[in-house]
């Protein structure tokens, strides 16, 4: 495993942003995973020296801009999620694949719950439990990425 380069971090975040900007609509929009957060979690786990809570906040701002919502919603959600991810990052190297999946699911859910709270405060109505589907699809995407050979760090340590 070679040390992670900063340019890979930027490149992957940029690609995720383009994915976010794709004209999703209808059913695809409802199940669309949070690409930016997935890439963030990947780098937070793998290279916390390159990508930390500050980066998460910054990425969140860009997502806020793309969604057109109130500034700071995604920024706050990503900051708190990044905090959880970073504070358990050392422990994560002992996790195996399945445990890591649950951990990622937990992180995705945390960000969604924070977003839900913020949006409810600003007057939105809960749109039903289907709101949490993007977390499930996000974990599925993570699982596919890991099984197709993406090294998320930590996984090989325990073996």
């Amino acid at each position: 495993m070679h040390p992670s380069k900063l340019k890979f971090v930027y490149l992957s975040l940029f690609c995720a942003y383009i994915f976010l900007l794709l004209p999703w609509s209808g059913f695809a929009l409802k199940i669309k995973p949070d690409f930016m957060l997935l890439v963030l979690i990947f780098w937070l786990i793998r290279a916390p020296n390159l990508c930390n809570i500050g980066s998460a906040w910054f990425v969140g701002l860009f997502v806020d801009l793309a969604t057109g919502g109130i500034f700071g919603q995604y920024a706050l959600a990503y900051t708190i999620t990044a905090f959880v991810a970073v504070s358990y990052q050392r422990r994560l190297v002992l996790f195996n694949g399945t445990q890591q999946l649950f951990y990622v699911l937990l992180l995705l859910l945390i960000s969604q719950v924070i977003l839900l709270i913020l949006k409810t405060f600003s007057g939105a109505q809960f749109i039903g439990w289907a709101y949490f589907i993007p977390s499930i699809t996000g974990v599925l995407l993570w699982f596919i990425a890991v099984t197709s050979g993406l090294n998320t760090g930590g996984r090989f340590r325990g073996k």
């Binding site: 809570i53 500034f71 700071g72």
Partner: peptide, 16 residues
């Protein structure tokens, strides 16, 4: 990490 969390959360809340 806690200091960063506090700092960036505060900025986010101000932005909100």
């Amino acid at each position: 990490a806690l200091a960063r969390l506090a700092f960036f959360s505060a900025i986010s809340l101000v932005l909100l």
